[in-house]
């Protein structure tokens, strides 16, 4: 099978620029799907293109990077957080926070729950629960 040509793939006259074979593989990875009509594969590919355009323009329009003419990750995660239509992306586009902030959050939680316990003790008890 041909490989590595994806970059240049497709001229202007093509109806869809995403590879149908790949779309099919992704669709088939869903266990409950048995067979798929070629029209449906084409439509999903086309819809995915529209989706990429929509996600990009929507995030750019409502994003913070607009002043610097840039589309950033946080613009995207903000879209997933704020827009109902894009809500299904919230899990894969989580909001980024600084590690230092996260550690503080953890600490605050700890203080709230069990103040006198040592850090290591708590970690080991968590491990026990997990195993």
């Amino acid at each position: 099978m041909a490989s590595g040509l994806s970059g240049s793939g497709g001229g202007e006259n093509r109806l869809v620029s995403l590879p149908l074979s790949r779309i099919r593989v992704i669709m088939k990875s869903s266990p409950e799907v048995s067979s798929i009509n070629p029209d449906a594969i084409f439509l999903i590919a086309k819809a995915t293109e529209l989706f990429v355009q929509y996600l990009a323009t929507h995030s750019y329009k409502h994003g913070q990077g607009k002043e610097n003419k840039a589309l950033t990750y946080s613009d995207l995660s903000r879209t997933a957080e704020k827009s109902e239509t894009f809500q299904f992306l919230a899990d894969i586009l989580p909001k980024k926070i600084l590690a230092s902030k996260y550690l503080k959050m953890l600490e605050r939680e700890k203080e709230g729950e069990q103040e006198e316990e040592e850090e290591e003790e708590e970690e080991s008890s968590e491990n026990e629960e997990a195993s």
Binding site: I26, F51, L55, A70, L71, Y73, L76, L93
Partner: peptide
């Protein structure tokens, strides 16, 4: 418009999830 590398891979992942 500059699209950060992170933004690109995020959109790519989002597209797979959309499919």
């Amino acid at each position: 418009v500059n699209i950060s590398k992170e933004a690109r891979s995020a959109i790519s992942r989002a597209a797979s999830v959309f499919v």
